[in-house]
């Protein structure tokens, strides 16, 4: 039994991580081969850093992800507060369900419907598909990020309840001051995690971006990599993917260390009591 569970564990981790390790390994391959490892080199990393297309795409991806995360966080937090304040329970649950639809929908459906919408709007405005691109992608990304922000902020607001806001009003805050000085700091963890979720969703979205980019030359990393697979994936993409994996790994370690520390602090507080 003990052996079995160990084998099971190894199997699971193997399936999860061997592909990634292979990718990292081949990013250091000296030759342009996806099958034979012929020696260690940084050749593909150098090539990657010398390719202006890749950097352009990376820059676009980051700008898009940061902007859509910020915008969807602002709109999503406001929406969550609005939903919380709704008096009618029916209306409340109806609106919460509706905001979840973009999240449940397959990306391909969201992507196609957005494309149709933008084509129609651009047609009415008499603009060509070339002017699609950054703006349409930003709108699309904000749209599909919104539910994640709401999903992460709304439970916080519900949990916090009304008492702190009422106390703030009681002590002389205007309703706006009460929100920014008291409510927002206390729901901040939810807001931040919503923003991080929105950022990562935007970062790795391919399907919806593919549909709404139109005929413009605006490229993001997922789009660029996909367009390369049509020809032949070169190992510099392995190098890029390796960098992404390493970045995510470092971020995860940092966030785990931080939350571990926070739990420790709480324990200390508990002892004092």
């Amino acid at each position: 039994m003990k052996h079995l569970s160990r084998i099971y564990l190894i199997l699971i981790f193997g399936i999860l991580y061997i592909p990634i390790l292979t990718l990292i390994l081949f990013s250091f391959n000296a030759e342009n081969s996806t099958a034979v490892f012929s020696g260690f080199s940084f050749r593909w990393y150098i090539e990657l850093f010398n390719s202006p297309d890749t950097f352009e795409a990376l820059r676009n991806t980051l700008i898009l992800a940061v902007l859509s995360a910020l915008i969807s966080t602002v709109i999503g937090t406001a929406a969550a507060e609005g939903i919380y304040r709704m008096r009618s329970k029916l209306m409340k649950s109806a609106i919460s369900s509706v905001t979840n639809i973009p999240m449940m929908n397959p990306d391909i459906v969201t992507g196609m419907s957005m494309m149709l919408f933008f084509v129609a709007v651009f047609g009415i405005l008499g603009l060509s598909g070339d002017s699609m691109g950054f703006v349409t992608m930003l709108i699309a990304h904000v749209t599909f990020c919104l539910p994640y922000v709401i999903l992460s902020v709304l439970p916080r607001i519900n949990e916090l309840g009304n008492s702190l806001s009422e106390a703030a009003l009681d002590l002389g805050c205007t309703p706006i001051q009460a929100f920014f000085k008291v409510k927002l700091p206390n729901i901040m963890p939810g807001v931040i995690s919503g923003m991080v979720m929105a950022f990562t969703m935007s970062l790795d979205d391919f399907v919806i971006s593919y549909f709404v980019v139109g005929s413009s030359s605006f490229q993001t990393l997922p789009l660029l990599i996909y367009s390369m697979t049509k020809k032949k994936v070169t190992p510099d993409m392995y190098a890029l993917s390796t960098l992404v994996v390493v970045t995510i790994f470092i971020l995860l370690v940092i966030s785990n260390l931080k939350s571990g520390k926070r739990v420790g602090d709480k324990r200390k507080g508990g002892v004092k009591k």
């Binding site: 008492s163 009422e166 309703p175 700091p185």
Partner: peptide, 20 residues
């Protein structure tokens, strides 16, 4: 007159102190 413009303050049942 809204609560924040009244010269009346409240001690709430569960204190409602600001945890931050």
């Amino acid at each position: 007159v809204p609560a924040h413009k009244r010269n009346i303050n409240t001690v709430f049942q569960k204190y409602a102190l600001f945890p931050h």
